[in-house]
Design a protein around this nucleic acid. Structure first.
Lengths: 132, 132
DNA sequence: GTGTTTGCAAACAATTTGCAGAATT
DNA sequence: AATTCTGCAAATTGTTTGCAAACAC
């Protein structure tokens, strides 16, 4: 849709990317905001949203619409699946190989063009399993 | 979580369910609202949301958080998969058998408990394929 | 009659946007 | 110098909620 327009560097964006890369969970925009404020106290929430939107549009990070409410962001852009805990809402990676077969099967019975799929598992994470 | 509490019937709710059952696409709350207004002109949007929430909590309809923005609702509660068009945003059914295998595979490499998954295909619907 | 449902409007949460000034190239 | 980026606050969007009156059982 849109070409990759010139991007100037900024302290704020660098910090956002760097932070996302340190995390294996998948922070929300607000968590990113709270964290970055430790380093850049007067960063604004708008800037965080702007950068996350920008970066995910360019494919440099992933936007995960896991729980239908709040988006989560992932610096690991390799195709992989996710899990969301029904109790605490945490989001984790599921390391299964991407199932091309599913796209093929779906294509066979579908009239349009299928380019990919996303797969979200649900249940209880290990922490919540114990405290139940 | 919550027991099925007594439910009194209402003209509005009956209309909402009836409408949803006539549709194979998966209307949003707002579309339901616009439609029902033809029959019940002074129904309020709040009532539509309240009933859709209520019905999906009781498992009488499905809430589909397809596009991360707007929820879609489905009167077909049998487990099945969905497709969302990247162009027009329409949501369609994908009739593949529910893949229990995926839950098993995911469970093997995951520490918590996996109860189910949802699978969303993306691409272009047949209409958008032609107009491209 | 008791308790649920409604319409309305106000409240809310997550996110986006307009703008003037600051920072990057 | 040109353009992108930021902080701030206001605007938007989708959805939920509080309340008094209306309705169902």
């Amino acid at each position: 849709m849109s070409d990759k327009v010139t991007m100037k560097r900024s302290r704020q964006r660098d910090a956002i990317i760097a932070f996302l890369k340190t995390r294996k969970d998948h922070p929300t925009a607000d968590i990113v905001y709270q964290e970055i404020r430790n380093t850049i106290p007067n960063i604004s929430l708008g800037t965080v949203y702007r950068n996350l939107a920008q970066l995910s549009e360019r494919g440099e990070i992933l936007r995960l619409p896991c729980d239908g409410k709040v988006d989560h962001f992932d610096a690991d852009i390799r195709p992989h699946y996710h899990f969301i805990c029904n109790q605490c809402g945490c989001v984790k990676d599921i390391h299964l190989p991407y199932a091309n077969m599913l796209d093929q099967q779906a294509s066979e019975e579908f009239d349009g063009i299928i380019t990919k799929h996303s797969l979200l598992f649900e249940g209880l994470c290990s922490d919540c399993t114990q405290s139940e």
